[in-house]
Design a binder for these strands. Structure first.
Lengths: 335, 335
DNA sequence: GTGAAAGCGCTAACAC
DNA sequence: GTGTTAGCGCTTTCAC
């Protein structure tokens, strides 16, 4: 990799390195004539400054890290898109890390950000919301952090969330109105913000509608696909099983579809299905899937915008809690 | 961001910077005792070396760039997963760029890699396969490049592809065997490797089966969603329209579904549908979608592995063309 | 076994 | 308007 650098430019132009540097950044100290010479040669030789040399000097990398639990749920895909676009507009580079729902990996990854690799972090938590020392360690070093979707409740951070409680309440109410009495809820995890908020919305709706909560109907996912499949399969095939399943994550809804096919359980006749999901094919499924859809792209975008604001105007910035609304799409699976 | 660095460690330990540096890298020059003192303090203070200082010295960033046309087709999602995992295993960081099918953006992005930001590049081309000067410029600077899926034909590079020609041939043959005579093919672009290979497979199958090729049945996508929708809609609603549509990209198949719903065109009775796709919901759709599915994860993994091999064992490495097989899943949409 | 010093490519304070 | 120099954090060569 024989890169072209300031030194080379300077020697070719018979100028000093600093003159070239200033010329390239259009400094008013430099004569128009010299600027032109420098710029022309730089363009001709395709000069690109070494970003790491600059980072070292300026303590800025113009890079942000995005740490996600997975990339299978479409929610995260659209979020990445939003982050990516906002970052691009501001000239930031995006490092991506996927934890595969492994908290240990999250810790390992996050630890590396302690020394300048990135200017800031956008994260949707894999770790339990109360086990976030690895994040506070970064925080203590002054690294700006934005949480989205699966947030921590420990700090005074920027949080991008949706109205999970209300959405779950609304979704559960819909199921009850459709005549369901035995509504199971599959929780993504009881250690994760969205898992708790959504469960609470579900519980409150049952309570308000005078339906007794049977703890057996709360399925607590393990985030391991085999475990989850087994969990949902046992619930759906049980004698006197649920007449509705409300899943908190897209992947669980798909697992439920497969199980219903396997056991010839009719959706929605035997069981109604509702899920938080950003599936682009929800309306094309057999039957079409009723979803609570989060504004994933907008959340990603907002996360990146807030982070960059924190980076570029630290004075004008203060941590915000931005909450956006999800949309309930009623389709065949809840008819 | 008050980071902890070698200097600070050294002063705390009353040692020189170089001793600390060596101790941390377990040099045999350093006494076991000193090593232990250094390591202990480093751990205690959560010392992480500044990656950019190291990059500057060693001309290595342990970072690779991944440039993709889009992130909506599930193919790319799974590819990212494969890349990410392989990179992680080898301690590499992954920068992600999405061009949104915009060749200008691809050029802009790629140009920045000319000076050390990344050690290598994995790319699925947005630009026409014959307009890749921006890539050769990097190549000339000695940056290792791996193409996957949408590859260039210009250079002697590592190429990770699938058997597009054979798959398209097989898919088209299936449609013919199902009784279709007027088979339309929606090409992703006539300037992109996969577009051409797949079209050729389609053509050859028609020819071998004695079906005359009507150029009208070749739909050439623009990668603009409105344009493409219009294109497909016009084709499907035309008098004496096609009795089969074979799309080269997942998104086009979904567009076709929507159009068929809108115009009440029965799939597969009125028109059979087949698509290259990695949709996890293909088997759950109404009707289930027949797909040619690429080993996306494995391709991503292979791409990253090949790139890292090129980076770490340049001597043992030579450019390879790795071709993997897609699988044809016959489902209701072609019955 | 430990330390001093040079230098990676760049910026910025300070000469001239 | 241009050049000299120090230094960002680290590794590495060379003294001692």
């Amino acid at each position: 990799m024989e890169a072209i650098n300031l030194k080379k430019l300077a020697s070719l132009l018979q100028l000093s390195i600093s003159t070239v540097s200033k010329a390239l950044r259009d400094s008013h100290e430099i004569s128009a004539d010299t600027k032109k010479r420098v710029m022309d040669l730089a363009r001709e030789l395709n000069y690109e400054p070494n970003p790491y040399a600059g980072s070292l000097r300026k303590f800025k990398s113009k890079t942000i890290a995005v740490v996600l639990p997975d990339i299978i749920n479409n929610f995260f895909i659209f979020a990445i898109k939003g982050i990516q676009e906002a970052a691009y507009l501001k000239g930031y580079h995006v490092l991506i890390y996927i934890t595969n729902e492994n908290p240990e990996y999250e810790k390992e990854v996050v630890r590396q950000f302690a020394n300048g690799r990135v200017d800031g972090l956008i994260i949707s938590l894999t770790s339990p919301f109360d086990k976030t020392e690895h994040i506070s360690a970064l925080e203590d070093k002054g690294l700006p952090i934005v949480f989205f979707d699966r947030v921590s409740q420990n700090f005074e951070h920027t949080l991008i969330t949706t109205n999970n409680y209300e959405s779950a309440y609304k979704g559960t109410t819909l199921l009850i109105k459709q005549g369901c009495k035995r509504i199971a809820h599959c929780q993504v995890s009881d250690k994760i913000s969205i898992g708790i908020d959504r469960l609470n919305g579900y519980k409150k709706a049952l309570q308000d509608m005078g339906i007794e909560l049977d703890p057996e109907w709360i399925l607590s996912s393990n985030k391991d696909i085999d475990y989850d499949t087994d969990l949902i399969e046992r619930a759906l095939t049980r004698k006197n099983g649920p007449d509705a399943l409300f899943t908190s994550v897209e992947t669980h809804a798909l697992i439920a579809y497969d199980i219903c096919r396997k056991h010839k359980i009719d959706i929605p006749k035997k069981i109604k299905l509702l899920s938080f999901s950003n599936l682009p094919t929800a309306h094309l499924m057999q039957p079409s899937l009723s979803t609570i859809t989060q504004p994933a792209y907008e959340m990603g975008r907002a996360a990146a915008e807030q982070l960059i604001l924190a980076l570029e105007k630290p004075a004008r910035f203060k941590p915000e809690r931005i909450q956006m609304d999800s949309i309930l799409y009623e389709r065949e699976s809840t008819r």
